[in-house]
Amino acid sequence: NKFNKELQWATWEILNLPNLNEEQVKAFIDSLRDDPSQSANLLAEAKKLNDAQA
């Protein structure tokens, strides 16, 4: 389904953001699992944090 694909994509993207530490990655992945419908928003937040920590 749509959420499953978005969840998989967001998870992959977050795992590959180079500037997030392990705790941050875990927190984003946990949030994705808690509410897959928020995957686009969570991915945007993760990318923003990744850029800020570059």
Rank of each mutant, 00 (worst) to 15 (best):
W12F: 08
L15K: 11
R33T: 14
A44W: 13
S31V: 07
R33L: 14
A27W: 15
E45M: 15
D30L: 15
A52Q: 10
K47L: 09
A44Q: 11
L43T: 05
L42W: 08
P36D: 02
D30F: 14
S37Y: 08
A52W: 09
N19H: 07
P18A: 12
N1A: 02
N1Y: 01
A52M: 12
D30V: 14
K26F: 10
N4E: 15
T11S: 05
N21E: 06
E6M: 11
N21R: 11
W9M: 11
L49E: 04
K5Q: 14
A52H: 10
S31R: 14
V25T: 09
D35H: 08
E6H: 09
Q53L: 10
E45T: 12
D51F: 13
P36M: 09
N1E: 12
P18D: 06
F28H: 01
W9G: 03
S37F: 10
E6S: 04
A10K: 03
Q24D: 03
W12G: 04
D30M: 15
A10L: 08
F28K: 00
Q8L: 10
A54D: 09
I14N: 01
D35R: 09
R33H: 14
E22W: 14
N1D: 15
K5S: 10
N16A: 10
S37K: 07
V25M: 10
A54M: 11
E13M: 15
F28W: 03
A52Y: 12
L20E: 00
A27S: 13
L15E: 10
E45K: 14
F28G: 00
N41I: 10
L49W: 05
D51H: 10
F28Y: 06
N41R: 12
E22N: 12
S39H: 14
N1F: 01
I29D: 00
S31T: 08
N4P: 13
W9T: 05
N19G: 05
K5M: 03
E6D: 09
N1S: 02
D30T: 15
N4T: 06
E45P: 00
A46W: 02
L32E: 00
N4W: 15
L32N: 00
N19D: 04
I14A: 01
K2L: 13
L42P: 00
K5H: 06
T11K: 06
L7Q: 05
P36G: 03
E45F: 14
L32Y: 02
D51K: 12
L43F: 06
V25E: 02
L43Q: 03
N41W: 15
K48S: 10
W12H: 04
E23M: 11
L17W: 02
N50A: 05
S39D: 02
N4G: 08
A27G: 10
I14W: 01
L32R: 00
F28S: 01
K5P: 14
A44D: 08
R33M: 14
L20I: 04
P36Q: 04
L43K: 02
L20A: 00
A52D: 10
A44N: 09
L7Y: 06
S37I: 05
K48F: 10
Q8F: 07
K26D: 07
L32Q: 01
K48M: 10
S39L: 14
S39W: 15
V25W: 03
E6G: 03
D51I: 09
L20P: 00
N16G: 09
D51Y: 14
E13R: 14
P36S: 06
L42K: 05
E6R: 03
K47H: 09
S39Y: 15
F28D: 00
L32M: 12
K5E: 15
N41H: 10
S37W: 06
A54R: 05
Q24S: 02
Q53D: 03
W12E: 05
I29A: 03
W9R: 12
A40Q: 11
I14P: 01
W9S: 05
K47E: 03
V25H: 05
I14S: 01
S37D: 05
L15M: 12
D51M: 14
F28N: 00
S31F: 09
Q38A: 05
N1V: 03
F28Q: 00
K2Q: 15
S31Q: 12
D30K: 14
N16L: 05
L15S: 09
L7S: 04
K2S: 15
Q8G: 03
K5G: 11
A40S: 10
E13T: 14
L20W: 00
K47A: 04
A40H: 07
K5W: 06
L49Q: 06
A46S: 02
V25S: 08
K5Y: 05
Q24R: 02
S31E: 07
E13I: 13
Q53Y: 09
N21Q: 08
Q53W: 07
N41T: 13
A44T: 10
S31Y: 09
E23A: 13
Q8M: 08
A44P: 02
L49I: 08
L15I: 06
E13L: 12
L15Y: 14
L42V: 13
T11E: 03
E23R: 11
I14D: 01
E22R: 13
P18M: 13
N41G: 06
A27H: 09
D51Q: 12
L42Q: 04
L49D: 02
E6K: 04
W9L: 08
K47N: 07
I29P: 00
N19S: 07
A44F: 13
R33V: 11
E23N: 10
K48P: 00
N19M: 08
K48R: 13
N41K: 13
F3L: 12
K26V: 09
L7M: 06
Q38V: 05
Q8R: 07
K5T: 10
A54H: 08
A44M: 13
A52P: 02
F3Y: 07
A44K: 09
A27R: 12
K48G: 06
N1W: 00
E45H: 12
Q38E: 07
A40M: 14
L15T: 08
S39E: 03
L17D: 00
L17S: 02
W9K: 07
E23Q: 10
A10S: 04
N21D: 07
A27F: 14
T11G: 02
N16F: 04
P18I: 09
Q24P: 00
D34M: 14
E22G: 11
D51W: 13
L49S: 03
V25Q: 12
E13V: 15
Q38T: 09
P36V: 05
L7R: 02
K2N: 15
D35A: 09
N4L: 11
A44G: 06
Q8Y: 09
N1Q: 05
A54E: 10
A54F: 12
L15V: 06
A46G: 02
Q24G: 00
E22P: 11
Q24W: 02
L7P: 02
K48L: 09
N50D: 08
N41D: 07
S37M: 08
Q8K: 13
S39R: 06
K2V: 12
A44S: 10
L32P: 00
N4V: 07
L7N: 02
Q8E: 14
S31A: 11
S39P: 04
S37T: 09
D35V: 05
P18V: 07
A44L: 13
K26Y: 12
I29N: 02
L17K: 01
E6Y: 14
E45G: 06
N19A: 07
A10W: 06
A27P: 02
E22F: 09
S39T: 08
Q24F: 02
F3M: 11
L20G: 00
A10I: 10
K48H: 08
N21K: 11
A40P: 06
